Simulated assay, not measured.
Amino acid sequence: MSQSNFIYRMLTNPYSVMAIAILCSILWGSAFPVLKISYDELGMSGDDLAAKIVFAGMRFFISAIILLMVMLFIDVKALKLKIKQLPFVFGLGVLSTSLQYFFFYNGLAHTSGMKAAVLSSCGIFFVVLFAHFIYENDQLDWRKFIGLIMGFCGIVFANWGEDMTFQFTFFGEGFLLLSGLVSAFGTFLAKRLSMEIHPFALTGWQMLFGSFLLLAVGTPCRNTEP
């Protein structure tokens, strides 16, 4: 069995899909406390936007390099992009890395981890809602609508605690909602591009382009601070 066939069978097996989804949920959920701890350990204040932009850029730059190096062993030919694909991959990097995590990192610094976990999940609900208008074969019916309500209520109840309040600020909760909105548009673009580009290569390139933009914007501002 070839390597590509093995990966395809693994990613389409129902049990593998469930295991991967659970692992991704655990890793994504760990981002909130880890980032909060990172802010404290690195001495980043809530208003230090430049530091958070640079921090995000460094993380995604390293992640992109690791993923692209892995692709060298999986399918090196898949790393090659066509000239006409570059603007779209760069656009995906702007949406899914630069803008999404600019809003996410800065929004997280101005709200509690519990509220961030709830609001960041809005990106998933935005995808389901917008898909109704974008794809003819993915219409929103009463079952999906009830599922959305139950899913959101479940996230709220799971994260309910002392830090859970109904206070809303643009630079906190507002930024997290914008992060979810940008993420939804990035998801639709990624779905389209993944039909032509290997998903691993697409993720690596878009993170690399997105990290360059974050570093290009954040580093000069960081260097000019007293």
Rank of each mutant, 00 (worst) to 15 (best):
G204R: 01
G57K: 03
L202R: 01
L202H: 00
P199A: 03
V94E: 04
F152S: 06
G91Y: 03
Q3M: 11
Q167W: 09
A116I: 09
R222Y: 12
G154I: 05
F185A: 07
L189R: 08
H110G: 06
D48H: 07
F126S: 08
Q167G: 11
F171K: 13
L95G: 08
F60P: 03
M195T: 13
V17M: 14
G57W: 00
Y105V: 01
K80F: 09
F166I: 10
F166P: 02
M44Q: 10
L95F: 10
I26D: 07
V70F: 11
G93C: 01
D40L: 14
P14K: 07
L95I: 11
P226V: 08
L81C: 04
Q100Y: 13
L49F: 13
V54A: 03
S120E: 14
I22H: 12
N5Y: 12
G172Q: 06
Q3V: 09
L181R: 06
P199E: 01
A51L: 12
L181N: 00
M71S: 12
Y135P: 05
I146P: 04
H132V: 03
I26F: 14
L208T: 00
F157T: 13
D40N: 12
P87S: 09
L178E: 02
F55W: 14
I22A: 15
D75N: 15
G151M: 08
L92F: 07
V182Y: 07
R222V: 10
F175D: 08
Q3S: 12
W28V: 11
W28D: 08
L81E: 04
T203D: 01
L140H: 09
K115Y: 05
A64W: 00
L99P: 00
L202Y: 02
F188T: 00
N5I: 14
K77L: 08
N13P: 04
G210K: 03
L214F: 07
T165Q: 08
V54I: 11
L11C: 14
L177D: 04
P220V: 11
C122A: 15
T111G: 07
A21F: 13
G93L: 04
G107Q: 05
G172P: 01
K77C: 06
K52N: 09
T224D: 07
S120G: 15
K115L: 12
M114H: 12
D40R: 14
V54Y: 01
E41V: 13
F102G: 09
A190N: 14
P226Q: 05
I146N: 11
Y101G: 07
L79F: 06
F168Q: 05
F188G: 02
P199N: 08
G57H: 02
A78T: 01
G180A: 02
M207R: 04
K80T: 05
F126T: 10
I197W: 01
E173T: 03
G151Q: 04
T97E: 02
L202F: 02
L92H: 04
T12N: 09
